[in-house]
Nucleic acid binder design. Structure first.
Length: 205
DNA sequence: GCGACAG
DNA sequence: ATCTTGTCGC
């Protein structure tokens, strides 16, 4: 009997999470934005600020972002059906990147959407140039994620499973959430929210 | 040993 | 991640 399904097929609420860093100080700010997948409208937002307690070390990235991100996530009133993180999930040296941590910690299905590859390679020739083109990311013989082109002629994003969702389903949602730009709206919104919060600006829309 | 290395 | 000038294209 399948105890592990494909994950959320038609999620209504998807959340994007991101963290912004100050240059001179060690201040950090997290932003979580919940979108309605039907309209891509913002349903809810939550933020948290703090101090970076862990340095940026490739491979240990999650330990740097998790504290402030979890704080922001705990302030959420709604319960998103999917969490999209800025970074990798399974596509990690130890097969456990940020998206895996956040999914397990919150119990919410999650996936990672990274702007640059970390581990794993794909055949550029196997990736079409149009929106929707995909090519598996393979590392040490295993498929750890997928390069996904979200816009015609634009660099692909790198999607990998976090928790409670399969790769195909994750890619479908990422593509649907990126109708106009390379990055999904969840990521773009969370990025702006975290930055505005860090800089003390009034959140833009 | 050397280079590479999510954000 | 953040900084940062000009440049290309719709």
């Amino acid at each position: 009997m399948d105890r592990l399904g494909p994950g959320p097929i038609r999620p209504r609420l998807v959340a994007g999470v991101d963290v912004a860093y100050a240059e001179g100080s060690d201040r950090v700010a997290a932003g979580v934005v919940v979108l309605d997948t039907a309209t891509l409208d913002v349903v809810e937002q939550a933020t948290a600020q703090g101090v970076a307690t862990f340095p940026y070390v490739p491979g240990l990235f999650a330990f740097r972002e998790i504290p402030v991100l979890v704080e922001a996530l705990n302030r959420l009133e709604s319960v998103p059906e999917l969490l999209l993180c800025d970074g990798h999930g399974l596509a990690h040296p130890r097969r456990f990147g940020l998206a895996c941590h956040l999914g397990l910690l919150t119990g919410i299905p999650s996936a990672g959407v990274a702007k640059t590859p970390f581990v794993g390679r794909y055949d550029p020739a196997a990736l079409g140039s149009g929106r929707g083109a995909q090519a598996d990311l393979v590392d040490d013989g295993e498929t750890v994620g997928r390069a996904l082109r979200t816009q015609d002629g634009v660099k692909p994003v790198y999607v990998s499973v976090g928790h409670g969702i399969d790769l195909d389903t994750a890619c479908r949602h990422v593509l649907a959430l990126a109708p106009s730009y390379r990055l999904p709206e969840t990521t773009r919104r969370a990025d702006r929210l975290s930055r505005d919060t860090l800089l003390g600006r009034s959140p833009r829309r």
